[in-house]
Simulated scan of single mutants.
Amino acid sequence: MRKWWVRLIRDKRGSYYLDTAVFVLVACMSLALTISVLAVSWRKTSAQDIADYAARQIAADGAISGSTIQKLTTVAGSGHFLIGVKTDSGMAVSLPVSTSEVGYALQEIQQGTGFAVTITSTDQNAIGVGGVQTNNTSVYGAANGVSAHYWKG
């Protein structure tokens, strides 16, 4: 007794070869697009996690300093993100999260002063399949915090 698929292929004289080839092509393109979207989604989640961590770290330290940037570098990786901090008092700082910024000057944030942290990816985040309809997206994370450090003086 022959298998059903052997009879099906022999009865149609190879017309299923073309259908199978088109199906495999569409399935591979769909898989590539799904992987591309998931990669950008993972980066967005990472940026949000780093923003939350940065807000907690800055609130505990009460400042944006070289040690804060160094701690963020261990979490974020060198050179992939740009951190921006704006306080309620009007101070605004924007710098890359990298080991070269460890000597950054201390920017004190007084106790009770609120601040907003934004993390932006510096890498190109493209969604698409190869060169077909590639869309660049911006990946960022944001978090708020309040300084818990009292600075004399």
Rank of each mutant, 00 (worst) to 15 (best):
V24F: 08
G130N: 02
I50G: 04
L8D: 03
I9N: 05
G62W: 06
A148H: 11
G114Y: 08
T45N: 09
K86Q: 15
Q124W: 02
K86S: 15
I58W: 06
T87Y: 05
R2D: 11
T74W: 08
S98D: 15
Y104N: 04
M29K: 00
V75G: 03
S138I: 06
V40C: 00
N144W: 13
R10T: 11
R10M: 11
V26Q: 02
S36T: 00
R13P: 02
G128Q: 10
D88N: 14
V139K: 00
C28D: 00
V139A: 04
T120G: 01
G66E: 10
D61Y: 06
C28E: 00
H80E: 08
G153T: 09
V24I: 12
G130L: 08
I9T: 13
S46H: 11
D88K: 10
V22F: 14
A126I: 09
R43A: 04
A126R: 03
A63R: 07
G79I: 03
T137G: 00
Y16F: 14
L33V: 04
I58S: 05
F23D: 01
V117R: 02
V139Y: 01
A55H: 04
D19H: 10
A55G: 05
F115L: 11
N136E: 12
T134M: 06
T87S: 13
F23K: 01
N125F: 00
A116R: 15
Y150I: 07
E101L: 05
V102E: 09
A148K: 13
T113A: 05
G131C: 00
G114W: 11
N144M: 15
E101P: 01
V132T: 12
V85W: 08
I50F: 08
Q110F: 07
V75D: 01
Q107N: 14
D123N: 09
S89F: 06
L82D: 08
L33S: 02
V102G: 02
